[in-house]
Amino acid sequence: MNTPHGVGIGWRPEIAGFVAELPGLRFVEVIAESVPTAGPPPDDLIELRDRGVTVVPHGVRLSLGGAEPVDPTRVAHLAAVAQQLAAPLVSEHIAFVRAGGLEAGHLLPLPRTHEAVDAICANITRAQADLPVPIALEPIAALFDWPDDELDEAAFLNEILDRTGALLLLDVANVYANARNRGTDPLALLDRLPLERVAYLHVAGGAEGGGFYHDTHTDPIGREVLELLAELCARHRPPAALLERDGHYPPAAELRTELDAVAAACGFPEVT
């Protein structure tokens, strides 16, 4: 089982053909909830796996940060996908996606309180007990903060990582988005995060709108995000960086250019 290395791309059905033809590709991620476990996984993923491409299941619906215990059937699904795809690790978010019987529809930030740290650590520990492989945790892009934060972001993340032993999936676009929307310095956060625990990076595009930077995954990667990526890799380069694109898929040539830009910023070989 190969851990992620080099430049990867988020596998999505819409770009499966493009992904299959990337000659140097060694690493993809797939949205775990989109992979059925009743039957075989999609053929394209099986082909990638059999070619030796590392496939990491990326969960978006576990709601590890929910106050209630994580749903064991959702953990079991994530575990089954990891096994089917021979994944060396899985990833999820430091976030919650439902509460009080309502689905939010996307990742929501936790209050950075000791109570919330206790809740998410308990859920991560529950998930780890049922997962066949390590889990990497991704801090999200948040458009708002809770009014009663007790910890700053670095202290909050470090506490969770230290208590669970989980790996870090650092999304450079999220770091940029949060710093931009809170008016803080993204490099100051990077200085306090354990970069040696990063399993891989995420990079994605976003857009300004209504006075906020939105982490859309449907726009090209901005220059500032690429610069932050390069700055991070200059400090301590993680083993892999993955481009996330979730809609408004551009022509293949543009996607290749984005992948090459990620490779250049990190100093990784091009996969195109």
């Binding site: 929910g66 106050a67 209630e68 919650f96 439902r98 509460a99 009080g100 019987g101 309502l102 689905e103 939010a104 529809g105 929501l108 209050p111 309180t113 109570e115 919330a116 809740a119 708002f144 903060d145 809770w146 009014p147 009663d148």
Partner: peptide
């Protein structure tokens, strides 16, 4: 209030038209 009730209030405000919980910008 508990984390559970506060998360529920927040989600209801975001997706079900409930009033925003106190303190949020």
């Amino acid at each position: 209030g508990s984390l559970a009730s506060r998360q529920a209030e927040l989600v209801a405000a975001l997706v079900a038209g409930a009033p925003p919980p106190p303190g949020f910008a």
